[in-house]
């Protein structure tokens, strides 16, 4: 069990994605990818609000949604912790589904550039193999 700090999250202003949604998506990805493991303590709303200079209500809203999705759970005295995940939530299909919004945006741009799927997929495969 790890105690995570607020540096877990980062947000971008000037995006068409509301900030609470950015936080939700990041937490989903971190949980699906295993960086956030069941039982891990999440940073407090106040810590995140201070670290990212955000309205605490925005952070609460994100935590509330993650709680509703059973990804986080409230533990007395501990605040929010990562929920014990059902096994299938880590399936390839579930994790791949999380990539859909990003890929949809890429697909839109690809169509605007009049690129065919083969070219795009080849490029994507190449990028995947690059060390970031």
């Amino acid at each position: 069990m790890t105690n995570h700090s607020a540096s877990l999250f980062s947000i971008a202003t000037g995006s068409s994605e509301p900030i609470y949604r950015q936080l939700v998506e990041q937490a989903r990805r971190l949980i699906a990818g295993g960086q956030l493991a069941p039982g891990d303590a999440m940073p407090s709303v106040r810590d995140i609000a201070q670290a990212l200079a955000l309205n605490p209500m925005t952070v609460s809203k994100a935590y509330g949604m993650l709680e509703m999705e059973h990804l986080l759970t409230r533990r007395r005295g501990l605040g929010m912790v990562v929920a014990d995940a059902p096994q299938q939530s880590h399936s390839v299909a579930t994790r791949a589904e999380l990539l859909r919004p990003t890929l949809k945006r890429a697909a839109l741009e690809a169509r605007q550039l009049e690129l065919d799927p083969e070219t795009v997929l080849a490029l994507f495969a190449k990028i995947m193999k690059e060390k970031s």
């Binding site: 202003t13 900030i19 990212l52 955000l54 309205n55 209500m57």
Partner: peptide
Amino acid sequence: ILSDLERVAL
């Protein structure tokens, strides 16, 4: 400054 507004305004 819209970026500040996004951070704090509901």
